[in-house]
């Protein structure tokens, strides 16, 4: 099957790649662009390990075709820190030991960032329901929820 030329923006940078029309955005990020921070845990949109922001919307990149990224803007885990400065969510995940194996972590961080951008002061229940599409098998979610709540407080300017 002949490939399609795709021009898009990833983490603010213009990129282009050739995509087989059957390839997912996740495949293209990982195998065409070398951005392997987004993970494939299921390929069916159930685990959230591939979460990215596509034109401002949180999506499972395994459910989006690579060719659909044409002319859009994609944000991935690789764009979350600004140079040496980690996003508060990233810092709080380390501080709270909110990761064990770390495989689900990129997707959860991307999803949590999307939450805090729409709801800067979520309740615990809101965090739990927002992240219900991101499976973590190691932590039992406890420390993840605490890290997200703590990062939200910091972003609101409240002392931890």
């Amino acid at each position: 099957m002949s490939k399609i030329h795709v021009t898009t923006k990833v983490n603010g940078d213009p990129v282009e790649f050739l995509a087989d029309p059957r390839e997912t955005l996740l495949d293209c990020l990982r195998d065409r662009l070398g951005l392997t921070g987004s993970k494939e845990g299921c390929g069916t949109g159930d685990c959230g390990a591939c979460s990215v922001i596509l034109d401002g919307r949180l999506v499972c990149s395994c459910l989006v075709l690579g060719v659909e990224a044409q002319g859009k803007a994609v944000e991935t885990i690789e764009g979350m820190a600004q140079g040496e400065d980690l996003h508060p969510l990233q810092r709080k995940f380390i501080e709270h030991a909110a990761l064990q194996c770390g495989f689900c972590t990129p997707g959860i961080l991307v999803a949590a960032k999307a939450l805090l951008e729409t709801n800067p002061d979520p309740t615990e229940t809101e965090v739990r329901y927002w992240l219900a599409g991101n499976l973590c098998r190691c932590t039992g979610y406890d420390k993840i929820i605490r890290a997200v709540m703590d990062a939200a407080a910091e972003l609101r300017g409240e002392a931890a």
Binding site: Q90, I94, L99
Partner: peptide, 21 residues
């Protein structure tokens, strides 16, 4: 004590290399 884990930075930035990476 509870210091930051040594592989924490790699794992919150997507740099850590897993099996398929």
């Amino acid at each position: 004590t509870r210091p930051d884990r040594p592989d924490g930075l790699d794992k919150v930035t997507g740099r850590a290399r897993y099996g398929a990476d």
